[in-house]
């Protein structure tokens, strides 16, 4: 296990020292210096401070004499749970899919499909059927109904031609 770590850290150090020729090899002269100009001193300072703090923390927790060999993450239950549950991302994903995607959006869309979209079409179909049935009562074959329908159609037409 130590062998690969030594190789990797050695390569990291070497690449750090040969950054400029490596960058030229990868992106040519065009990209040189752009990153450094944009980065600013504060970013370098913060990065270095974080690295030094990390090194100090590692020494304090595990390296110094009499240390408990237990990291602070292990000692604080809330932090321990946060990391062991992988930042609760799986829980959040499960909750989101179940309660938001399924219960809200998917169920609502399915209800809309069945009750609103299909409901309108089915309702319209029922209306057509019922109107047809209602109109079919006029088709009883009796002369008086036929005359009544003829009058109901012709009267407005006649009125239109007389007064329009």
């Amino acid at each position: 296990m130590v062998g690969p770590l030594i190789i990797l850290s050695g390569m990291t150090l070497a690449l750090g020292f040969f950054e400029a020729p490596l960058e030229t090899f990868l992106i040519g002269n065009a990209g040189i210096g752009i990153q450094a100009e944009g980065a600013g001193l504060w970013l370098i300072s913060v990065s270095m401070a974080l690295v030094i703090f990390g090194g100090f923390l590692a020494w304090f927790e595990f390296g110094r004499k009499g240390s408990q060999q237990v990291g602070f993450v292990e000692r604080i239950p809330a932090l321990r749970a946060l990391f062991s549950e992988r930042w609760y991302l799986d829980h959040f994903f499960g909750w989101f899919v179940k309660n938001v995607v399924y219960r809200i959006f998917a169920d609502l869309s399915a209800q809309n499909d069945r009750r609103v979209i299909d409901g309108c079409i089915d309702g319209f179909s029922r209306l057509v059927v019922r109107s047809g049935r209602a109109l079919s009562t006029l088709q009883s074959g009796r002369v008086r109904y036929n005359l009544m329908v003829t009058f109901a159609v012709l009267a407005p037409v006649a009125l239109y031609f007389l007064f329009a």
Binding site: V101, Y102, F105, A106, D107, S109, A110, D113
Partner: peptide
């Protein structure tokens, strides 16, 4: 979007 959402409940 709608096709996927309704499909989820089938």
């Amino acid at each position: 979007v709608y096709g996927v959402l309704v499909g989820l409940t089938q």
